[in-house]
Every structure is written in structure tokens, then in C-alpha cells.
Lab assay of single mutants.
Amino acid sequence: MSIQHFRVALIPFFAAFCLPVFAHPETLVKVKDAEDQLGARVGYIELDLNSGKILESFRPEERFPMMSTFKVLLCGAVLSRVDAGQEQLGRRIHYSQNDLVEYSPVTEKHLTDGMTVRELCSAAITMSDNTAANLLLTTIGGPKELTAFLHNMGDHVTRLDRWEPELNEAIPNDERDTTMPAAMATTLRKLLTGELLTLASRQQLIDWMEADKVAGPLLRSALPAGWFIADKSGAGERGSRGIIAALGPDGKPSRIVVIYTTGSQATMDERNRQIAEIGASLIKHW
């Protein structure tokens, strides 16, 4: 067993022997301040990774656009098919120029040779490549099948209805392509620590998230040296922004954090800054 596999296998073990965790309302004060600064709703939840206990939450059962955070769930569904012998990570998928959609920095470079399922998941999570996500959605049967996968996990809230990039439209009061912070946090925890996926697939999923290259201005910008984070960000229309993450000190994750916002007129930089400040408060009061 590799060191990384050992780390993920012992996530519940280490967490069980940690000192009790206590909620700190100071972080919620910052979440509410972010709402004021952005002029928009902000949803927040913080779960203990081992027990699933909610440590703090704000608007945990209000719907927010998922945006690209759905790509972690998508690759979880792909990995479940791999575990069941219905898919192979090494299978190569070929596609054409007509398949390319807006923001496809990886797939646009491989029109000639195609990409493997493993490479597509890596591109979808680490670079948020939209064509990679659409190609992977095709392998599982489309958005409705991802929703069905989530329902089978016990998540009857999260739903995907459309493809990239239309799913980022974020129309107010439109339930399409949305989740709730509580539902997303619980589902992410199941994917990373539950028995739904094999140990190898859980490790692969967290490795992809740990290698995320496009979430630097968010929670990662607030992390002290030595902290662990595996995350996936999302951005959408109407001032929408979000991030889902597993993080913790001492090089291992111990909490799940989900943050979503929508309806702001603020710039992307300002949305990023507010999420980073929430992260800084979380870490300060850990």
C-alpha cells in the first residue's frame, strides 16, 4: 500500500482519535458579512469528516447552483462504474471539434489522439474542462443518470439537468442544476469515506481534487503551510461562485467545507476574496 493510499485508508482512524471539535460562531459572522459585502445569498456548511456531524452552517438547506462543483460527483459516478466493471479508466475516447464547448483548455489539445477516461476526469476536476465533463456525462448516460446515481446514494436534493455550459445559467428560483450545502457536503463525505467506492477509487477521487489547479484564489489562499486540501470550485452566471473541499491540518483532511453564493453584482475577484476570507476565519478558529 502506498503512503497516499495509507493516508486515505486511515482518515477515519486518525479522526477518531482527534480531540473533540467545537464550532466557532466567528466564522458564521464572516459568512454573514460576506453576504453584506456581496449583496447576495451565501450558503455555508462545515462537517466533521469522521462523524458527519454538522459543526457550523448557514442557509444549509437553500438551493444554490452547483456550477462546476458537480464534476466531482460526476467522476465519482464514473469511478463507481469502474468498480462495477462497467468502465475502464484506460479506455480512450475520441471526439471532434464539434464536441468542444466553451472553456476546454485540455480537451482542445487532444482532438487528434483523444483522451482516456482517467485523463478526462483529471481534466474535468483539476482544470474544470467543460468538454471533458460533457464527454464523461455521455459515458454514464447524461445528466439524468448522474441525478439517479445521487438518488441511489441517498441524495434526493442534488440534481443535474443540463450539460456544460448551460448548467451554469443560475436563474433565480430555478431548481435545475442545483444542490443544497448540506446535501453536497453529505454526498461528498460519502464519496470520500464511505463504502460506495473502493479504496482505490476513493484515493483516485481525492487525488484529482488535491491536484486542483484553478481554485488557488479561494480556500487555498488562506491555508497555512502543512495543511491538506482537496477541492473543486465552480463559477456561473449572475454572480455565482462555489467551492467544495476536504481539508485539515497535519497533512490530512478532517472536515468537509461547502460554500456557495449566487445573485451578486460583485466582480469575480471580490467573490473570490470573500470566500478566501471565510476560509481564513475557519482556519483561525479551527
Rank of each mutant, 00 (worst) to 15 (best):
Tyr103Val: 00
Gln37Glu: 03
Leu223Thr: 08
Ser201Phe: 14
Glu46Cys: 05
Gln88Tyr: 14
Leu197Trp: 14
Phe70His: 09
Lys284Ile: 02
Ile256Asp: 15
Arg189Glu: 07
Thr193Glu: 03
Val258Glu: 06
Ala276Ser: 05
Glu26Gly: 10
Arg162Tyr: 04
Met268Cys: 15
Thr178Arg: 08
Asp161Ser: 02
Gly141Leu: 09
Leu49Tyr: 13
Glu108Cys: 10
Asn152Gln: 03
Thr116Cys: 00
Gly142Ala: 12
Arg176Gln: 09
Leu73Tyr: 07
His94Gly: 13
Glu62Asp: 12
Leu136Arg: 02
Asp99Leu: 13
Ala84Lys: 13
Lys71Gln: 04
Ser254Gln: 00
Ala124Thr: 08
Thr186Ile: 13
Met180Gly: 00
Glu108Pro: 09
Leu137Cys: 10
Ala280Leu: 01
Leu120Val: 06
Leu196Asp: 04
Gln97Gly: 05
Ala34Pro: 08
Thr112Val: 12
Gln203Ser: 11
Thr27Ala: 11
Ala200Arg: 09
Leu196Phe: 14
Gln203Ile: 11
Thr147Asn: 05
Ala123Tyr: 00
Glu145Asn: 00
Ala148Ile: 13
Arg118Ala: 15
Thr138Ile: 15
Arg238Ser: 05
Ala123Cys: 00
Ser122Asp: 06
Ala266Tyr: 15
Gly90Cys: 14
Trp163Val: 07
Glu145Met: 11
Met209Phe: 06
Arg238His: 14
Pro172Met: 11
Val29Trp: 15
Pro224Glu: 02
Asp250Asn: 02
Thr139Arg: 04
Gly76Ile: 09
Thr107Asp: 05
Ala123Gly: 00
Met268Asp: 12
Leu282Ser: 11
Arg202Ala: 08
Glu145Pro: 04
Pro60Cys: 03
Gly141Ser: 09
Leu192Ile: 05
Lys213Gly: 03
Ile229Tyr: 04
Leu38Ala: 07
Thr69Val: 02
Thr186Lys: 01
Asp155Gly: 12
Arg255Val: 02
Lys109Thr: 15
Val31Cys: 00
Leu49Ile: 15
Asn98Leu: 05
Val78Ile: 00
Met153Thr: 11
Leu137Glu: 05
Gln265Asn: 07
Lys284Gln: 04
Gly242Cys: 01
Thr267Glu: 10
Ala34Gly: 09
Glu166Met: 02
Pro253Leu: 14
Thr69Ala: 04
Met153Gly: 13
Phe149Glu: 14
Ser68Glu: 03
Glu102Thr: 07
Arg202Asn: 09
Asp207Glu: 05
Leu137Ser: 05
Pro224Thr: 05
Asp161Lys: 00
Glu164Asp: 14
Ser104Gln: 07
Val29Ile: 03
Leu146Phe: 00
Ile93Ser: 12
Arg176Asp: 14
Thr158Met: 01
Arg220Ile: 11
Ser233Ala: 05
Gly142Ser: 06
Asp48His: 00
Ala77Tyr: 02
Gly194Ala: 09
Ala132Met: 15
Leu79Tyr: 06
Ala183His: 14
Val258Trp: 12
Leu135Ile: 15
Ala77Met: 05
Tyr260Ala: 00
Met115Glu: 00
Asp174Ser: 03
Gly39Leu: 11
Ile275Thr: 11
Gly263Phe: 04
Asn173Thr: 10
Gly114Thr: 06
Asp212Glu: 14
Leu47Cys: 00
Thr69His: 03
Gln203Val: 13
Arg238Lys: 07
Glu164Met: 02
His151Gly: 08
Ile278His: 14
Arg255Glu: 00
Gly39Lys: 12
Glu169His: 04
Leu49Ala: 15
Ile278Gly: 15
Leu28His: 10
Leu199Cys: 01
Lys71His: 07
Thr139Lys: 14
Asp99Pro: 11
Leu47Phe: 00
Phe64Glu: 12
Leu223Lys: 09
His151Trp: 01
Glu119Phe: 11
Pro181Ser: 08
Glu195Asp: 03
Arg176Tyr: 05
Ser51Thr: 06
Thr178Val: 06
Leu135Pro: 07
Gly76Asn: 04
Asp250Phe: 05
Glu210Gly: 11
Ile140His: 14
Leu197Gly: 09
Glu145Gly: 07
Glu175Pro: 01
Trp163Asn: 03
Leu205Ser: 04
Glu270Ala: 14
Leu160Lys: 09
Trp163Gly: 08
Leu197Ala: 11
Asp99Trp: 00
Trp286Phe: 08
Leu219Gln: 11
Leu199Ala: 05
Glu164Asn: 15
Pro217Ile: 10
Ala124Asp: 01
Leu49Lys: 13
Pro165Gln: 05
Leu47Asn: 02
Gln88Ala: 11
Glu270Pro: 09
Met184Thr: 04
Met268Glu: 05
Gly39Cys: 00
Thr198Pro: 06
Val157Ile: 06
Leu205Thr: 04
Arg159Thr: 08
Phe228Met: 09
Lys190Asn: 15
Arg271Trp: 04
Thr158Lys: 10
Asp99Met: 10
Arg59Ile: 10
Leu89Ser: 02
Glu108His: 11
Asn50Cys: 10
Leu146Gln: 06
Asp33Asn: 01
Gln86Ser: 10
Lys252Ser: 04
Ala124Leu: 10
Leu74Ala: 07
Glu119Gln: 14
Ala182Ile: 11
Ile275Leu: 14
Thr193Ile: 02
Glu119Ala: 14
Val82Arg: 10
Phe70Gln: 05
Gly263Cys: 00
Ser264Cys: 02
Asp113Arg: 04
Arg189Ala: 10
Phe149Arg: 14
Gln88Thr: 14
Asp212Ile: 12
Ile278Asn: 09
Pro172Ile: 00
Ile278Ser: 15
Met268Gln: 10
Pro65Tyr: 15
Asp250Trp: 04
Val214Phe: 05
Trp227Ile: 07
Pro25Asn: 12
Arg220Gln: 04
Val29Gln: 03
Leu247Asp: 04
Asp129Tyr: 13
Arg81Tyr: 03
Met66His: 08
Ala132Arg: 04
Ala84Ile: 11
Asp161Cys: 01
Ala246Val: 09
Ile125Phe: 13
Val29Asp: 15
Ser57Glu: 15
Gly39Tyr: 14
Glu195Trp: 10
Met127Trp: 03
Ser254Ala: 03
Lys232Thr: 15
Thr147Cys: 12
Thr126Asn: 06
Ser51Tyr: 09
Asp36Asn: 05
Val72Gln: 15
Ala148Glu: 07
Pro172Ala: 08
Ile229Ala: 02
Ala246Pro: 12
Phe149Ser: 11
Val82Lys: 05
Glu166Lys: 12
Asn130Leu: 01
Asn272His: 08
Lys213Glu: 06
Asp129Cys: 11
Arg81Ala: 01
Ala132Cys: 11
His24Pro: 00
Thr147Asp: 15
Leu188Ile: 11
Thr193Gln: 06
Asp48Thr: 01
Met268Arg: 12
Pro253Arg: 09
Ala183Val: 05
Leu191Met: 09
Ala185Leu: 03
Arg118Lys: 04
Glu61Gln: 09
Thr107Glu: 15
Asp207Val: 03
Ala245Glu: 14
Gly251Val: 01
Pro224Met: 12
Ala266Gly: 14
Asn173His: 04
Asp129Arg: 14
Tyr103Ile: 00
Asp207Leu: 06
His94Phe: 11
Tyr103Pro: 04
Arg91Glu: 09
Asp207Lys: 03
Lys53Ser: 02
Thr187Gly: 04
Thr198His: 04
Asp83Thr: 05
Leu38Cys: 14
Glu108Tyr: 10
Arg63Cys: 09
Arg162His: 14
Gly194Thr: 03
Ile93Gln: 12
Glu87Met: 14
Gly236His: 10
Met67Arg: 04
Ile283Met: 15
Asp269Thr: 09
Lys190Leu: 15
Ala182Asn: 14
Glu87Lys: 13
Thr262Ala: 10
Thr27Tyr: 14
Gly226Phe: 13
Glu87Trp: 13
Gly43Thr: 06
Cys75Met: 04
Leu188Lys: 02
Ala132Asn: 03
Glu270Gln: 15
Leu89Trp: 10
Lys284Ser: 06
Asp177Ile: 05
Arg159Lys: 03
Met268Val: 14
Gly279His: 12
Ala123Ser: 00
